[in-house]
Computed example of a mutant assay.
Amino acid sequence: MQNRLCGIASMLIGIPTGVKIYDWMTTMFRGRIRFTVSTIYLIGFMLLFVLGGMSGIPLADPGIDYQVHNSVFLVAHFHNVAVPGLLFGMIAAYYYYYYWFPKAFGSS
């Protein structure tokens, strides 16, 4: 019973995450996108996060999860979600902060 509840909870995580990704993509749609360092990291984050999320959907099925537990597939899913989410987000925020902070506080 617990495996099914965890599978359902894992599937439900994908719905708001997909909505977030589509919201971010529609925000950039028809905009004047400048390919700064922050934008490139943002696009890399979105691509790798979606790839990791798509590999997580089969992992929500308890039967498949049992078969691939402690495998390279599970490790790749985790790294494609955690690394872009943490590292790329931090790097993009750093470069955004590095660019805007002096302008906002009059030191440039």
Rank of each mutant, 00 (worst) to 15 (best):
V83Y: 05
I8N: 06
Y99W: 03
I33A: 06
F29Q: 11
W100H: 11
I43N: 09
L42C: 11
F45H: 13
F105L: 03
Y41Q: 03
W100N: 12
V75L: 15
M25W: 07
M90G: 10
F73C: 11
T36W: 02
T39C: 09
L74D: 13
H69G: 08
I15K: 07
N80V: 00
T36Y: 04
I13F: 14
L74V: 15
M1L: 05
P84F: 02
K20C: 02
Y22N: 00
V83N: 05
T26F: 04
I15T: 07
H77C: 06
L47C: 11
P62M: 13
K20V: 11
A104F: 00
F73Q: 14
L51S: 10
F45P: 07
R34S: 08
A76V: 15
D61C: 13
T26R: 02
I64Y: 15
Y66K: 15
N70S: 14
V50F: 05
G31M: 04
G53N: 06
I13E: 05
L12I: 11
T39S: 12
L12K: 07
D65Q: 15
G89R: 00
I40Q: 09
Y96C: 07
Y97S: 05
M54Q: 08
R4Q: 12
R4H: 11
M1Q: 08
L42E: 09
I43P: 08
L86V: 05
R34D: 05
P58C: 11
M90I: 12
L59C: 10
Q67K: 15
Y94R: 02
V50C: 07
H69Q: 13
R34I: 07
L47Y: 10
M46F: 03
P84N: 05
M25C: 06
G53S: 08
T27W: 07
W24Q: 03
F29M: 09
D61S: 14
I64L: 15
V75A: 15
S107H: 01
F88W: 03
V75T: 15
H77T: 05
Q2N: 10
L12V: 10
I8W: 10
V68W: 14
G7V: 06
G106Y: 00
A82K: 03
I57S: 01
D23F: 10
V75C: 14
W100T: 08
A60D: 08
P84W: 04
G52W: 06
M1H: 09
A9S: 13
F45K: 06
V68T: 14
D65E: 14
W24K: 01
P58F: 13
Y96Q: 07
W24V: 01
R4W: 10
G18M: 06
I33H: 01
Y98P: 00
R32D: 12
T39G: 03
T36K: 07
S107Q: 02
P58R: 13
F29R: 09
T26G: 00
G85A: 05
I91F: 06
H77Q: 11
P16I: 10
Y95I: 00
G106D: 01
R32V: 03
I91L: 08
G56S: 12
G52S: 07
A104T: 03
R30V: 02
S10Q: 13
P62V: 13
V50R: 03
L59P: 06
Y95Q: 01
G56L: 07
F49S: 02
M1I: 04
M25K: 04
G52V: 04
Y98S: 04
M28A: 09
V50Y: 03
